Simulated assay, not measured.
Amino acid sequence: MNPRHRALWLILCLTACSGGHAPSAESARAAPADAVPVEVQRVAPGAVREELTAVGSLRADESVVVRPEIAGRIVRIGFTEGQAVARGQLLFELDDAVQRAEVDQARANLQLAQRSFDRAGELYGRQLLSQSDRDQAAASRDQAAATLALAQARLDKTRIVAPFAGIAGIRLVSPGDYVAAGQDLVNLESMQSLKVDFRVDESALPRIAAGQKIEVEVDAYPRRRFEGEVYAIDPRIADATRSLALRARLPNPGGELRPGQFARIRLAVAQRQDAVVVPEQAIFPRGDRLFVYVVESGSARLREVRVGQRSPGQAEIVEGLAVGETLVVTGLQRLGDGTPVKDN
């Protein structure tokens, strides 16, 4: 057999041994070597905190605008603006010359009335004075005592003191100013702890209670969360908004937070320790539904899921996925239902 015939015979033999067919493209795709590399993660239970979000504002624990109860001229200011003051510390003192004179006059009248009452008592005991005259002397004494108490009260009102410890604001008057009764002098804020006022929808009523924890974020400290606790719930739902007012207390020992700041609030209403929690990147939408890929027998299987609570980078799956299943985390854009996959 010449060399050309021998080569042809070898080719025919090889074709017959292989069944006469070359490997198809479909079988090549099914080979494990052609599986799509992905990152997978086994679904494990995790803790999930159910939260309500709201916006509100910070309020001082105690806040007051200091005003005089009587008119007068300011002769002394006893605090420094923007600084801490103690309870009972003098803030403003008004000219008290007239009030002191009234107290002296009332005290002298009381002393005279007391002596008259004492003499009336002696005469009554000797039966030289009638009961009505003795009663008149007693009434005069009591009236003089009341007049003295009134004069002393007016004198006390010339000294305006702090009703509680706090931080004094910017004063609106100066020494020598004549102020009217009820005129604004300065604001005083207690800031060791703050109040947080916010509202939630009436539908949340069954899930809220005093003692629940909150987290507060403010624009001044964008990377920080301040923790507080709900202590009061308004018994009435607002007619206009159908919302419920809540008030929480927020510790503020460093004085970083200030009354009037805008606050974003997260209210924890429930916590589950055995929830199904997955990376948020493993979930993708199709229309108005959400899906994940689950690895079954080496292939990616499309699975519809229902998402519950979300947190940064994670999401709770409340339906469609069970603990222990293998979830595709990355490479989703190259997959379809039934695509062979391998862990990268």
Rank of each mutant, 00 (worst) to 15 (best):
M1V: 11
R4M: 08
L8G: 08
W9V: 07
I11T: 10
C17K: 07
G19I: 10
E26R: 15
S27T: 01
A28L: 00
A28T: 00
P32N: 04
A33F: 01
A35Y: 00
V36D: 00
V38T: 05
V40Q: 12
A47D: 02
A47S: 15
E51W: 02
L52F: 04
L52T: 11
T53F: 05
L58P: 00
A60R: 06
S63M: 12
V64W: 01
G78T: 05
T80K: 12
E81P: 01
G82D: 02
G82W: 01
A84N: 09
Q89N: 04
L90C: 07
L90T: 11
L91M: 14
F92T: 04
L94Y: 01
D95A: 14
D95M: 08
D96V: 06
A101D: 06
A101R: 12
A101I: 04
N109F: 05
Q111L: 11
R115E: 12
R115G: 08
R119V: 12
G121Y: 03
G121L: 06
E122H: 09
Y124G: 12
L128E: 11
S132N: 14
S132T: 15
R134P: 02
A138Y: 02
A139Y: 03
Q143M: 08
A145Y: 09
T158V: 08
R159K: 14
R159M: 08
P163I: 09
G166D: 05
L172D: 03
S174M: 07
A180L: 13
G182D: 07
N187I: 06
S190Q: 15
F198Y: 12
A209N: 09
A210Y: 02
Q212V: 10
Q212A: 10
K213Q: 13
E217Q: 15
E217K: 14
R223D: 10
E227A: 13
I233L: 15
P235C: 09
A238Q: 14
T241W: 03
R242Y: 03
L244H: 02
A248N: 08
L250D: 06
G254T: 13
G254N: 13
A263C: 06
V269P: 00
A270E: 04
Q271V: 09
A275P: 05
P279Y: 04
A282R: 07
I283Q: 03
G287D: 05
D288I: 10
R289Q: 13
V292N: 04
Y293P: 00
E296D: 08
S297K: 14
S297D: 12
E304S: 09
V305K: 06
V307W: 01
V307P: 00
Q309V: 15
R310D: 01
S311G: 12
G313T: 09
I317H: 03
E319P: 02
L321C: 08
E325Q: 11
T330S: 15
R334V: 04
D337H: 07
G338D: 00
G338T: 02
T339N: 08
P340W: 00
P340C: 01
D343L: 13
